[in-house]
Simulated assay, not measured.
Amino acid sequence: MKTGKVPPDILKKAVYPFLGQKRSEVLVHSGFGEDCCIIDFGEYVAVVSTDPITGADTAGGYLAVFVACNDIAACGARPIGILVTLLLPEGSGEDTLLRIMENVHKACQKIGIEVLGGHSEVTPAVTKPVISATAIGMAKRDNFVTSAGASPGDDVIVTKFIGLEGTAVLALDFEEYLRGKLPGEVIKRAQSFVDDISVIQDGLTAAGAGATAMHDITEGGLLGALWELAEASGVGMEIYRERIPILPETEAVCRAFELDPLGLISSGSMLICSGDGQKVVDALREKSIPATVIGKVTDGGRFILDADKKIPIVPPERDELYRAIENVKNKKKN
C-alpha cells in the first residue's frame, strides 16, 4: 500500500468485517464515509472521532486539534475536549515535546476545549513525531447530522476555499523550496492559512440551517470528501468545476509542486448537502463564513462537469500532500 489512507476496497475486506459486537447505545456505527461514532446518552448524544497528523511538521500539534474537532462539527456537535497520543522518535529533545504541546494548548484555547488526557512516549517505531487526537463532543439527540443523509435534489455546498490546510502545510514545511518559485508575499499568505482551518462554526451553523449531510474535507481533498459522502448516502453527484472556490495562493502552491488542488487535504472547508442550499449559504454568510453551491446530489453517477468534459469522481489513491513530500525528497536525493 502507498502512503496515505488505506484504500476503500482493502478497508471493506480487512477492517469493516472485524468491528466487534455492535451495541444498542451506538446510534451511528463505524462505516465508510462516517468519521464519527454517535453514542446515545438520553437527551444528548456523545460524538467521538479520532485522527492522526503525519504529514505536517511545523504546525502538527495545532492542526491535530482542529482536524479532530472538525469531525465533531461535521455532525453538528460542539467539541468539549480531546485526548492526545504523542509518539516521538528516538533522540527527540524536550523542546520537541514542548513545541507540540504549546501548539495543542494554543488550539484548544482558541476552540474553548480541554485536553482530557492522553499518552506520550519515545519509540523507534517512528522516524518523526506522530500526533493522534481523539475529540469528544455533544449534541441534542434530535439534532445531529451524519454523512449518510444526502438525498437526490439536495444542493452541494462548500464553505470557504478548498486546499487551505495543504497549502499552509506546504508553505510552512517547504518554505525554502518555494522561495525560488513564488514571491515571498504569496508564501507568507499561504502560511497564514493555518489560522483558517476550523470548520466548527461552519458545522454548527449549517446543522441549524437544515443540513442533511456534512463531511469535513480532509485527506483526499474535495475529491475524496465528495466520494465518501456520496458513498455513505448511496447517491450520485454532479459538481461544476468552475464553481469550486480556490484561492490564488493555493493555485500557485499547487503549480509549484505540480499538484491537483481538488485532491489536496482541505481542513478549513466543509462539504454540506441541503434541500435548501441558499438558506444554508445565507446562514453561513451571516456568520461571515463564505459558502458556495457547487452542484447537486443526483440518483445517477458521480461526476465533475468541466466545460465539455465529464470527469468521474473517484477516491484518490493518496492525498496530493504526500506526493509533494515524496517529490521534494526525491529531488534532494538527486
Score class of each variant (00 low, 15 high):
E258V: 12
S198E: 11
R241T: 00
R241P: 06
I272E: 06
I304S: 04
L305M: 15
D299I: 01
L262R: 15
S288I: 01
M214F: 00
P248K: 11
K296N: 12
L284S: 04
R302M: 13
T292F: 07
V194A: 13
R302E: 06
S233N: 07
L247I: 00
A225I: 02
L222C: 07
I294T: 06
F257D: 11
K287L: 08
D202A: 10
A213R: 01
D202L: 03
I246C: 08
G277Y: 08
D306T: 02
I294Q: 12
E242V: 04
L271I: 02
A206K: 11
I244V: 15
I246F: 00
T205D: 09
M237S: 04
A206C: 08
V235K: 07
P290W: 06
A291I: 03
K279A: 15
L204G: 03
G234T: 04
G277V: 01
G277H: 10
V280W: 04
G208L: 11
G301I: 06
R302V: 01
Y240G: 04
F303N: 01
H215I: 05
L223R: 14
E249F: 03
V297E: 02
F193T: 06
T212H: 13
G300P: 13
S198R: 12
T212V: 00
M270Q: 03
G220A: 02
D282T: 11
G236N: 08
F303V: 12
M270W: 00
V280R: 07
E219K: 01
T218G: 12
T298L: 08
D195H: 13
S269C: 15
V281D: 10
F193L: 14
L222P: 10
A225D: 02
K287A: 12
T205I: 02
I244K: 08
A211K: 09
G295M: 03
A230Y: 01
T218C: 03
L259K: 10
Y240F: 13
V297Y: 00
L284A: 13
I289V: 12
E258I: 02
P290E: 11
R285C: 10
R255K: 15
R243S: 13
G295H: 07
V253P: 11
P290T: 10
R243G: 05
L271D: 04
A207Y: 02
I304M: 06
L264Q: 08
V199T: 15
A207H: 00
M270C: 10
E286P: 01
I246L: 12
D306V: 04
G234I: 02
D195Q: 14
S266A: 14
G208R: 14
G210Y: 05
L229W: 02
L223D: 03
L284N: 09
V297C: 06
E258A: 14
M270H: 06
E249Q: 15
S288F: 10
I265E: 09
G208H: 05
A209L: 08
I265V: 12
F193W: 07
G263P: 05
S269F: 05
E286T: 06
A232C: 04
S198F: 07
